[in-house]
Amino acid sequence: MNKNVAIIWGGYSSEIVVSEKSMNGIYSFLDKNRYNVYKVKIDKKGWTAEIEGKEYIVDKNDFSIFFGSAKIEIDFAYITIHGTPGEDGRLQGYFDMLNIPYSSCDWMASALTFNKFVCNNFLKNFGLNVAKSVYLSKDSKYDINAIAEALKFPIFIKPNTGGSSFATTKVKGIDKMQEAIDFAFSEASDVIIESFISGREVTCGCYKTSDHEVVFPITEVITKNEFFDYNAKYMGEVEEITPADLSEEKTLEIQQLTSKIYDLVGAKGIIRADFIISDNTPYLLEVNTTPGMTTTSFIPQQVKAAGLSMTDVLTEIIECEYQKIQKSL
């Protein structure tokens, strides 16, 4: 009997538009001969499942779908919400209580990696190089001049708990700082201000199962924009080279760092680590535990470059996590 797999998309932030693209990508990758696949949208309006072009209510008590007089029980949840509540640990904790296996990191690893400032400073303790940064909450008392003096221009100001470069600004002078801080606060309740690191931007994906580890080929990101902003990420204003034109030694170093990060944060499923290589030294930008999954996203590119199939990779992740839950029951 086929397993019922729900692709969960949506969310409560501006990244919902990216989440929809990832959901469609994942839907195209999943093996429909093996799984009954349902698109489940979670947003501020409610939880609904799309079946044959119509919407049906999802029962939050057990994450089942009311389909007329029938009830569809979900065997596996593939989470592709970028932002709250799918990337910050909230849904993960919910599924843990229901004993429903899911694709991404558990609640603790998700909460850790979702907070850029906390995650980067946590990993800094284990030898990872990261940019200098300052953290602001909405209650923070801060001195713009002191921050500018500590970090030097240019700097990046962005939501601390957000992604896809929404509300992110590269600031080159103090006259634009407050505007950029306010812009970042419009997207999240906290803000991270980071020093700018000049270099080559690369990204590397990885996943591990009980049987083996797969670290993908590296992608280099080249854009003429000020930085790898939303237009570069999703509107084609970028050149993405997979595998990256790096030395064998540097490639191995980035891949080993990615694998190390995977273990340190206690990851599960597919993650992606983003780096800047400056003066031959890799600096971690951030860890993404719910990476984009459109057909042209980094992970599908890297899977193809590795000579693998997205369908096979996702099947392996689903079956591995499903078996873990079954053994624990």
Results as ranks from 00 to 15, higher is better:
K158F: 02
G236V: 05
V214T: 14
I144V: 07
L136W: 05
Y142E: 01
G127S: 02
K172E: 15
E248I: 15
A180K: 11
A232M: 10
S140T: 11
F153R: 06
D182T: 15
T219A: 14
F227K: 06
H212G: 13
C204Q: 04
Y230S: 08
K170S: 03
E213T: 12
L257E: 02
I157T: 13
T161R: 14
I254S: 04
F185R: 09
G205Q: 04
E253P: 11
L136R: 03
N225F: 03
C206N: 06
T251D: 00
S210L: 14
Q255T: 15
K138M: 01
V134A: 03
E201H: 05
A244V: 02
S210G: 08
G162S: 05
F153N: 07
S140F: 04
A148K: 03
T258N: 09
F156H: 00
N225M: 12
L246N: 02
K224V: 08
A131S: 06
G127E: 06
F185W: 08
E220I: 00
M235H: 12
K250E: 15
D182S: 13
F166Y: 07
S133T: 03
L151N: 07
D245I: 14
E226R: 14
Y230T: 10
V221A: 00
S164G: 08
A244G: 07
G199F: 07
K172V: 15
N225G: 09
F183C: 14
I254D: 00
I241A: 05
N145E: 15
V215H: 03
D139A: 13
P217M: 06
K170R: 06
N225A: 06
S137H: 02
G127K: 01
S140W: 04
A167S: 14
